[in-house]
């Protein structure tokens, strides 16, 4: 039940990031087209088949993507509407369940409570639904913060090069050499009082070096590209070259990575909560935290652990399937 296995070989992780970065290189601006077309949003009318259109055509017929997208959609919708569709208040102990709750006997499924009670007499189904919302918040914010940090560091390293690049990348290498969950645990443990936000910050910090390395790799490829040379030949200022010419063309792999990171940060958040480093206030349920509480009772009531665990697995699977098929669709090399 421990989340994400620790990566035994950090160098393998680096190589993976670099090879992903290479998909954005030089002439293969495929992934990139996606960015601008969606940003412009008015390309379709000119008749040409843009690369995002052909990627979408492939994705639409890809059952793996459809499954992943369906899971993700259901999860996001449930998370958004959770407080309204939850049959009971997730933070309140329900008198009907409390009546049957005594040491050594947790009420099982019954009318109005399809999944039964948790150990404190609260409705398990409602807690799972509301927990989806917390999980989504952690996943999305951890990804956004990690992406932001990675963008800043990766842009610095890739654009300036020289000693800035060396310093940033050595720091990134050191961070990558520590297994990600271990690093997240260490950072979360530094916080004086565990909360949802310490979890988010800890996970975001772990993602920063991955994004930074990825972006730096594709920025380097851009730096020696023809259109950057052409821009320099026009006397375009360095800032404009970095932010208008290099950065937008380097974002493709980073965007793909973000969807994958959504999955890992949900798993990692569950892991931190499970280890007691998450939000200790159980009035705001979160899947990892529910899992952590259930472990004491796993001998007698395995279903208390089973439900949050299966939720985590399915949601992480959904994001991963979606991210992987997105990467395949945008990577010209894996086109079949």
């Amino acid at each position: 039940m421990t989340p994400s296995p620790m990566d035994p070989r950090p160098s393998a992780k680096k190589n993976r990031i670099d090879s992903l970065a290479a998909t954005a290189g030089g002439g293969t601006a495929t992934a990139v087209k996606d960015v601008h077309v969606s940003a412009a949003g008015k390309v379709g009318d000119t008749g040409g088949v843009s690369l995002i259109a052909s990627a979408w055509a492939r994705l639409r017929r890809n059952p793996v993507f459809l499954l992943g997208a369906a899971i993700t959609l259901v999860f996001v919708v449930l998370a958004l509407v959770a407080p309204w569709i939850a049959p009971h208040d997730a933070s309140k102990r329900i008198p009907e369940l409390l009546d049957d709750l005594r040491p050594g006997a947790i009420p099982g499924p019954r009318d109005g409570f399809p999944l039964g009670s948790d150990e404190f007499g609260r409705d398990l189904l409602s807690r799972l639904l509301v927990g989806a919302r917390q999980t989504l918040i952690v996943g999305v914010f951890a990804t956004i913060f990690g992406l932001t940090g990675g963008l800043v560091l990766g842009t610095l390293a890739g654009a300036l090069g020289g000693w800035v690049d060396s310093v940033v990348m050595r720091v990134v290498d050191v961070m990558l050499s520590i297994p990600s969950l271990l690093l997240a645990v260490s950072i979360a443990a530094l916080a004086p009082r565990p909360s949802q936000w310490t979890v988010i910050i800890a996970i975001a910090t772990v993602q920063v070096p991955i994004f930074a390395r990825l972006l730096r790799g594709s920025m380097l490829a851009q730096r020696s590209s023809d259109h950057v040379l052409a821009a320099r030949a026009l006397g375009v200022k360095p800032q404009a070259i970095i932010f208008r010419h290099m950065l937008p063309n380097s974002l493709g792999p980073v965007i793909v990575q973000s969807t994958l990171v959504l999955a890992t940060s949900i798993i990692d958040a569950a892991g931190l909560s499970f280890l007691g480093l998450g939000n200790s206030d159980d009035r705001q349920p979160e899947w990892g935290q529910m899992l952590g509480e259930a472990q004491r009772l796993i001998q007698d009531y395995p279903h208390l652990a089973f439900y949050p665990a299966i939720c985590i697995i399915i949601v992480a699977l959904g994001f991963t399937l979606m991210g992987e098929s997105l990467r395949e669709a945008l990577d010209p090399k894996s086109r079949r």
Partner: peptide, 11 residues
């Protein structure tokens, strides 16, 4: 090379 000399993400 006219394609690679133009920035693909800018009109």
């Amino acid at each position: 090379d006219p394609l690679s000399s133009l920035n693909p993400v800018i009109p």
